[in-house]
Design a protein around this nucleic acid. Sequence first.
DNA 1: TTGTAGGCGTTATCAA
DNA 2: TTGATAACGCCTACAA
Lengths: 351, 351
Amino acid sequence: MATRTNGKSGKQPTINDVAALAGVSKKTVSRVINRSEFITEKTRKAVQQAIETLGFVPNPQARALAFRRNFLIALLHDNPNPQMVLNFQQGVLDAIKDSDLAMIVRPVDRGSDRLLDDMRTFLEKQRPIGAMLLPPISENDELAALCDELGVRYVRIGSALLDDARHCVSSNDREVVAEAVGKLIDLGHRRIGFVRGPAGFRSAAEREKGFHEALAQAGLSLADENFAAGNYRFATGVEAGRKILSQPAPPTAIFCSNDEMAAGVISVAHDKGIRVPGDLSIIGFDDSPTATHIWPALSTVRWPIREMGMRAARTLVAEFLGPEAKIAESDSPVLPSTFIERQSVAAPARN
Amino acid sequence: MATRTNGKSGKQPTINDVAALAGVSKKTVSRVINRSEFITEKTRKAVQQAIETLGFVPNPQARALAFRRNFLIALLHDNPNPQMVLNFQQGVLDAIKDSDLAMIVRPVDRGSDRLLDDMRTFLEKQRPIGAMLLPPISENDELAALCDELGVRYVRIGSALLDDARHCVSSNDREVVAEAVGKLIDLGHRRIGFVRGPAGFRSAAEREKGFHEALAQAGLSLADENFAAGNYRFATGVEAGRKILSQPAPPTAIFCSNDEMAAGVISVAHDKGIRVPGDLSIIGFDDSPTATHIWPALSTVRWPIREMGMRAARTLVAEFLGPEAKIAESDSPVLPSTFIERQSVAAPARN
DNA sequence: TTGTAGGCGTTATCAA
DNA sequence: TTGATAACGCCTACAA
């Protein structure tokens, strides 16, 4: 019994239908699909023609089986912040839009002791071409090693270079925080508070370094009573605000390591009748929706997260995307962040 | 040449390896994998044994090819709000955690005139078992029809019943808005403003109905000057606030159809020196992160979005999940929302 | 440059 | 209840 080759049996047309219509072998069609070089322009056109008249779409499942690899890229994250995850997804999808790739999303539990096993099962089952690791799990070296072991490409997203350029996309948190705090100093602020992110997070460490760099450059230092450690959540911003703003002579400005904590500090200021920015300037980090929704609107740092998503996808699977997706050797894996000035910053009322 | 059947060639063991080790045919192994009934307990155990010693995991790509169907469920959304999308994803993943299913995510552009074509290509390529449509694209009947045509199951998420119970998961926006506005009335508010969502959105219409229901029940009505139409974005909340709060005798309370617009109204109130909730009570909708990040914290309505994600997955693919995922006939597809009281609501200062 | 034969790992068919 | 054989749709190796 010959393979069914009619294109009208109600099913999707297959490579056989295309081959029959174009009068070539299915291998030739396969070559056209996969952009092989060894094809005469003439046959290529004939095959293209047949593909179009039939509306043929290669079956990804069959390709996946033959290639021993799924045309998927996986996004692994621990939900650092929804806006970021979604913006990143958007960037990835911008990059793979016209390709054969799809994205699967996998939230993971960074705290779980089964994390590595879960990831192994997931990667073995899905066999994605590559995986993108968002912070903070991107900082986990064991995960990267696991990807290597399983032959899954990976890219780690971070606040600083976490790996070599082929495996990393990052922002420049340290630099841009130094710049932001520098602006506070230029405005005349001398007593500047700092709310740190959670211990063990690279982003928290980088932002802290940037803060101290700026202070050191101006010959300033951070007093213990102007420092608080949070965990990037609103509630810890409130705690930080209560601690720092309860002093008789609180600082005239506070740099918070993310917007959510900055919102917490601002809300304490409102409670205490401290005017922002009149009495207190505040800077956050992330440019989250919160930054513009609170009052006054928050000066903050914008991560180019959508661009990072696009870059991550290109770093991972450039050859599956168009030629414009190619990344030059000279392209840095560091995508610069931007300081955004809004209403929460002003010169200090008095010296 | 016989099929390679050694389990040690560095590759994953296949069904052949299992069959060889258990001394049965591969079809029998297949039956065990797929929980066929026509298997002696004895052979079943022998096969199980072999599966475990080999650490065999069925290859999803091969299954997908043979089944002509990918073990995927697709999440289609138009990014209504990141928190919601991510919470929904989380719910879906809760549901499919221990199954063979994975989730692919596909943001779409509701405005694009290629929307239907894009969706068709996507669904034909990926061949997911089912698709989940988030609002507002869930309201698009053509999309649902497309799913039907392609043999892809679907579930539509909405603010009200958009389809029959097998194709729908919804909240009860109308009721809960009526309840929330009822509370304002109980507190003594008589002049209550309303900021509507964008025209053409079912959620906006449902919330509007709920608002008018509550007013009607108390014999009140909405004055034109206390009404504004927004598009769910912060900026339109600001516009609405400017319009409604510029009157000589503005309302003592405003219901906003989502949190983002409520934040805009509150920010205008701050600008004008109108105290919230002293002079003006505000209620939002969504219980987004913004609701707790602004000052004062916003009374709002919480959508059970994570539960809806879980329910959507179960509605779609109950038979792939455990028996506990089964949905009874009597289970309503409506998951009730909850009114959350925070600091933005109080009794009016004077009558 | 193109085609033939065979394999990827699973399920379906139908006979035993 | 089980198994041999043929799909599923595409790709690789090798031959022409």
